[in-house]
Amino acid sequence: MTDLLKTINPATGETLKTYPRMSDDEMALAIEQCQAAYQDWRQRSLEDRAKVIKAIGDELRKHVDDYAELMTKEMGKLYRDGQEEVKLCAGICDYTAEHGPKELASEERDIMSGRKGIVTYSPIGIVYGIQPWNFPLYQAIRYSISNLMAGNGVLLKHAETCTGSG
């Protein structure tokens, strides 16, 4: 196993970029940092989380062409399909930011004998996603944004062939 990951343009064979492979110590540190971030993130209000997620969507929209070009180079995706993938991901962020706070709000329910119960949605921890190459941005966004909205932390291990766009 080499200590570098390479992204290679499948159309030309050109090496696009090399990335250092994480050592075991770096991986352990990333997990520790994610756990520390999760401890803070889980305490934030649903509305605060929604603002951050909306901002992620806004940033994706600002860089549609950059991401589409990168996906074209890394995996041979048609440029227009890359643009659509980025726009879809921004839409997922928008939808989650708009509907997440209501969907995850605690619910009061009537139970027997006139009593009330409360259903509360609580984060569970860090979610680790191992994602494939075919939709590099979408695969990362589809699992991470909903989990971030729910207050979880996320870690990503993407396919090596699309390390940049993943």
Rank of each mutant, 00 (worst) to 15 (best):
M1N: 08
T2K: 05
T2V: 05
T2I: 05
L5D: 01
T7Y: 05
N9L: 03
A11W: 04
T15D: 01
T18P: 11
Y19L: 11
R21N: 10
R21P: 02
D25Y: 09
M27K: 09
L29Q: 14
C34E: 14
A36F: 07
A37K: 11
Q39G: 01
D40V: 06
W41H: 09
L46A: 08
E47G: 07
I53S: 00
I56A: 03
K62W: 01
K62T: 07
K62A: 11
D65G: 02
A68E: 05
A68Y: 03
E69M: 11
T72H: 04
G76I: 01
Y79N: 07
D81I: 03
V86G: 01
K87T: 13
L88P: 00
G91C: 04
I92H: 11
C93I: 02
C93F: 04
T96L: 08
E98Q: 13
P101T: 03
P101A: 05
A105Q: 13
S106M: 03
G114F: 03
G117Q: 10
I118T: 13
I118D: 00
V119Q: 03
Y128S: 15
Y128A: 15
Q131P: 00
N134S: 03
F135N: 04
A140T: 10
R142Q: 12
R142D: 09
Y143M: 13
A150T: 06
G151K: 05
N152C: 13
V154K: 00
L155M: 14
L155W: 00
K157W: 05
K157S: 10
H158V: 07
H158P: 15
E160G: 02
E160P: 13
T161R: 08
C162S: 13
C162A: 15
T163N: 08
